[in-house]
Design a protein around this nucleic acid. Structure first.
Lengths: 244, 244
DNA sequence: GCAAAAGTGTTGGGGGTACACCCATGT
DNA sequence: ACATGGGTGTACCCCCAACACTTTTGC
């Protein structure tokens, strides 16, 4: 924040949201189909220009709500990082602040004909190159996935992918989908239930599924993210992902 | 990157740099004394407006060079996060992208009378409240220190605080200063030298100090950060900091 | 010789992996 | 009865904390 004498350059600033969820055993990302140039018809991350008087996280939440129809975003929203401003938009320099949302598999708004259509897409189809994204959104997605992978190791954020109540097996499925690995169900159960300040037993059980009913848990109060506070590292030692 | 119909708001964008080093056994931060309002006479992070055509990291490196006299920055520079734009500058909405520099203890330029004076200050004096910073720079510093602490656990970035060649004890002093703890010299030695792809023995030794001479190491080629690439997690399992 | 710092050996324990085994439900 | 998934017990092993001990310098 030094004063430099030349007039400060002003930049258009956008917020983009990488919304991730677990679906069909894999990691999925919410993408919209662009209706206008540049990159018309191409898939892109939801996002848009920040408005005067808005904070970054507010703007990200608003853009997400506008394009998915979710009243207020479920799950965990945090800042990922900023990109640009040079050479990422053919129309000129635009700075974007990317955000990361980890959420349960919520239904997206069925867009009308004049709105951009938002839907879930498997992350691997994008990173394989089967689906091409607009702008530098593939790079942003890559960074987002890497952030999500490492966050699961030490934070309780895996629960953000589940609903309010979940079984140990559902929680394990999150780790397996994000990391792309298999975890031993028995050892995972011990680690998850044995970690203090992580899970709280609701006393209720699943019913109707095949096999023995499973206990339902929710996030312990101590592990729930306080608004704006950094997520506590409750998993210590961390739950380590198998080496690649 | 959705197109919204209202004209996109444009914001002045600054880059700030949290330059950290280890000095006198403690973590220090590079601060400038502001010569103009707002916050005239107050300490602040070095930084300034991003120029048209610049990338974020470029701008951060330039601002640092301008205010410290270092030709090109030593150590490791990375993006920390963005803050704002609302309510952090009394003159209006300004978005800032904070950066983190981990560097050896380099001498800062002795500023002339018309330049802002840059110098090292112990981080604990700032976070104690003994020194007050301008804008929201204390919050940014807090985030930067937390990022530095956690990066040391799994990345080889502690070496960024040392010069090109260093002893195991100097490397340990970095961990102790950043984490604010004491580590067992013997166990640290084994962990550091035993980790593959971390340290490379130069074959040379220190001389002249008290006690037995120590072997000099440098960062192994595999651990050196490739430009723009994410830092590899060479320390696996991580070097764990003692619980607070 | 003595202090100081570098570096090695050894031992005990916590937590991880691997896997055998038992439990409770749907069909 | 059988399949399916939930949950527990246990053996082994690696790595870390703790600390005794040796090595090599300066004074």
């Amino acid at each position: 924040m030094t004063e430099t004498h030349p007039a400060p350059a002003r930049f258009p600033v956008t917020v983009d949201v990488v919304a991730l969820t677990v679906r069909d055993g894999g990691l999925n990302v919410l993408l919209i189909t662009r209706l206008i140039d540049p990159f018309r018809g191409r898939l892109a991350l939801p996002g848009g220009f920040i408005l005067a008087g808005e904070e970054l996280l507010e703007a990200a939440g608003r853009e997400l709500a506008e394009e998915t129809g979710v009243g207020h975003h479920p799950g965990h929203l945090e800042q990922l990082g900023s990109y640009g401003p040079k050479g990422r938009d053919p129309r000129g320099d635009v700075l974007t602040v990317a955000h990361l949302l980890l959420a349960p598999d919520f239904p997206v708004l069925a867009a009308g004909s004049d709105a951009e259509h938002a839907a879930w897409y498997p992350v691997r189809h994008v990173l394989n190159g089967d689906l091409q994204l607009a702008f530098d959104h593939e790079r942003i997605l890559t960074d987002a996935v890497e952030r999500a992978k490492s966050k699961l190791e030490y934070s309780p954020l895996a629960a953000a992918f589940c609903g309010d109540e979940f079984t140990i097996a559902q929680l394990r499925a999150v780790y397996e989908a994000v990391w792309g690995t298999r975890l031993d169900p028995r050892n995972f159960h011990r680690k998850a239930t044995g970690t203090p300040d992580f899970l709280q037993d609701t006393g209720r059980m699943t019913t109707g599924d095949a096999g023995r009913p499973a206990a339902l848990f929710r996030l312990a109060a101590a592990a729930r993210p306080a608004a704006g506070q950094p997520t506590r590292a409750v998993l210590n030692p961390p739950l380590m992902r198998p080496r690649d």
